[in-house]
């Protein structure tokens, strides 16, 4: 492999007056082979060109979670990102994580992120739902989430966090799932109730960005989906999101077709639907009123039979394990 000159275009941030940060972009040139990591090159710049360049790092092996920064428009771990894969015409653009307050250059203030993690009570709790024995397959459900290193890549890219800083966020919710699905957790239902509150599991947009940016294959959104399922199974179904989800399977079971009129009614209730008129009026102007009486698809009885069959003898499709995980 041959080395070439790369330009690092780095967002520099200096704390200004209380709570403000002054930003500018600065360019550095480094010579490197395409498979050199971004972290190595940031160190080269800091050690040889500019000692003021500030970033966090520690383990160099994608396990401590320190070096998540925005590289080429995506939040990634600098220690496992090769310069050749992110450079565009030899230029690599680097800035701090998004959706987080910046302390200095590429270092963000990690406290708000961890405050959200603390908020989900990130520890096993004693309680009545604790199982006695741990089976060999007990962690098949939680293994992917225990790989989380709390680097914050997912939160930085989260489309809901971008517009709602109160959203608990993918990392903390994945951590919550780790406890809800641990056989030793004693307060699973209580957790599910708390997680169904506003800014919790039902606020995830399902945009799937967290799944793709996660450097540890945690798939936070999959954990959020499973939290929703567990919540509904435990009767935690009063939030708008939960009602919306329930409406779906009723519609499909009854008619095989999603009915957008009744969907709105069920999700928000009558009053809620009327509140929605802002949008409904806009739709109505264009003659876009969904029919309250959709036609059934052909063979809807098959759907009902499938549904009933699965109610009689459920299949665990959440894990690839051969047997269902007892909870």
């Amino acid at each position: 492999m041959t080395s070439q000159t790369y330009t690092f275009r780095i967002q520099r941030n200096m704390p200004g007056q209380v709570g403000t940060v002054q930003s500018h972009w600065q360019e550095y040139k480094v010579e490197a082979e395409p498979n050199t990591t971004i972290l190595t090159l940031l160190e080269t710049i800091k050690g040889g060109q500019d000692g003021t360049l500030t970033f966090r790092q520690s383990c160099r092996s994608a396990i401590c979670g320190s070096c998540a920064i925005n590289i080429g428009g995506r939040t990634r771990l600098a220690c496992k990102t090769h310069v050749g894969t992110v450079a565009k015409d030899g230029v690599v653009e680097i800035s701090p994580q998004k959706n987080q307050p910046v302390l200095r250059d590429l270092a963000i203030d990690i406290r708000p992120f961890f405050a959200r993690v603390h908020g989900i009570k990130p520890y096993l709790q004693e309680g009545p739902e604790r199982a006695g024995k741990v089976t060999s397959t007990a962690y098949d459900q939680v293994n992917h989430v225990t790989q989380c290193i709390m680097c914050g890549c997912c939160y930085s890219e989260c489309t809901m966090a971008e517009v709602n800083p109160k959203f608990i966020g993918p990392a903390a919710l994945a951590k919550a799932f780790r406890f809800v699905s641990d056989p030793r957790e004693g307060l699973k239902t209580e957790r599910l109730q708390a997680l169904a509150n506003p800014n919790g599991i039902w606020s995830c947009t399902r945009c799937t960005l967290c799944v793709d940016v996660c450097p540890k294959e945690v798939a936070p959104m999959e954990a959020i989906v499973k939290l929703r399922t567990r919540g509904l199974n435990k009767g935690v179904n009063t939030s708008a999101g939960a009602k919306h989800a329930l409406a779906f399977h009723e519609d499909i079971k009854q008619t095989g077709q999603l009915n957008e009129f009744t969907l709105m009614m069920r999700t928000l209730g009558i009053v809620g639907s009327l509140m929605e008129t802002g949008m409904a009026l806009h739709l109505a102007k264009k003659g876009k009123i969904p029919s309250p009486f959709p036609h059934s698809v052909t063979g809807v009885d098959e759907l009902r039979r499938m549904y009933e069959s699965l109610e009689r003898s459920p299949i665990d499709v959440e894990t690839k394990a051969k047997e269902a995980v007892p909870e």
Binding site: V225, A245, I252, M306
Partner: peptide
Amino acid sequence: MPRASCCGAVSLRETKPAFALAVAAR
């Protein structure tokens, strides 16, 4: 596809994950 039902979107996988797969398979 006269027999095709709604795919269940993101929601059916949350309420009834196995049913969602069966619906898609159909």
